Amino acid sequence: MKPPVILVTGSTRGIGAALAEALGARGAAVIRHGRSAAPGVVGADLAAPAAAEMLWEDALALGEGRIDVLVNNAGLFAANPIEASDIAWLDGWEETLRINLTAAAQLSRLAVKHWQARGVPGRIVHVASRAAYRGDSPAHWHYAAAKGGMIAMHKTIARGYAAQGILSFAVTPGFTDTAMAGDYLASRGGTGLLADIPLGRVATPEEIAVIGVFCALDAPPSMTGAVIDANGASFVR
């Protein structure tokens, strides 16, 4: 059998890089994506409305017309305080929603249509956040809203296309040891925030990658629609 072709967005660092490496170790043909092109990396700035479609077409070409799994991991985590000017606040909101949610929706739509046209099954893995359920800081309304929207989208995809063999899974990490989380920890008081995590530490990208690989390759079809938390018990549902 041919190895599965998997597009992992935002896979040049952090969780995405760990996911791409772990999937490759399992024999998958991984297509990496970053904001800028680099050797072995398809470049696409998802803040641009046409970028998602261009990324999909470039990935399809690399996959010789086939993509079996989409991992929506690309994200932006930038503070947007309510004290900012009206224009700055709206710009921050729209940029975060576009990268974290709208681009993921565009890619998910293209993936579903691709699998429907070929009459084959497919999987989507959404890397969301515990913020989808517990919210985030006062400077991150937009981030929490985007991740909440991603979870709602994921559940809708799961319910709408399971009968066609198109499955959807979501992972909701808490703080993870990435550059984005490091900036947030520093802005919110540093290690004092660890007191909110019963496990006593943040997750590693490799831990989240284990869950992502399971969803992409191993999770049974009956799990479609599932949301898997990974936050050190800082939020339990």
Rank of each mutant, 00 (worst) to 15 (best):
L194P: 01
A195M: 08
D196W: 08
D196E: 14
I197E: 05
I197K: 06
I197Q: 06
I197R: 06
I197N: 05
I197W: 05
P198E: 08
L199A: 14
L199H: 11
L199S: 13
G200D: 00
G200N: 00
R201P: 00
V202Q: 07
V202K: 05
A203G: 15
A203C: 11
A203S: 13
A203H: 02
T204F: 03
T204Y: 05
T204Q: 13
T204A: 10
T204S: 13
P205L: 02
P205G: 03
P205Y: 02
P205K: 02
E206G: 10
E206L: 04
E206H: 09
E206S: 12
E207P: 14
E207A: 11
I208V: 04
I208T: 00
A209H: 03
A209S: 05
V210H: 14
V210D: 12
I211P: 06
I211Q: 10
G212N: 09
G212W: 06
G212P: 07
G212T: 05
G212M: 08
V213H: 08
V213E: 07
F214S: 07
F214W: 12
F214A: 09
F214Q: 05
C215D: 00
C215Y: 00
A216Y: 01
L217M: 07
L217C: 07
D218H: 10
D218W: 02
D218Q: 09
D218A: 07
D218V: 06
A219R: 04
P220D: 06
P220H: 06
P221H: 12
P221I: 11
P221L: 09
P221E: 14
P221M: 10
S222E: 15
S222R: 15
M223E: 11
M223C: 15
M223W: 13
M223G: 13
M223T: 13
G225R: 15
G225S: 12
G225P: 15
A226F: 04
A226V: 11
A226G: 12
A226K: 11
A226P: 11
V227L: 07
V227F: 02
V227G: 02
V227E: 12
I228V: 14
I228Y: 10
D229E: 12
D229T: 04
A230M: 00
A230E: 00
A230N: 01
A230W: 00
N231T: 07
N231A: 05
G232N: 13
G232R: 12
G232Y: 10
A233T: 15
A233C: 14
A233F: 14
S234G: 09
S234E: 12
S234L: 03
S234D: 11
S234H: 04
F235K: 01
F235C: 01
F235M: 02
V236M: 15
V236Y: 10
V236R: 14
V236Q: 14
V236W: 10
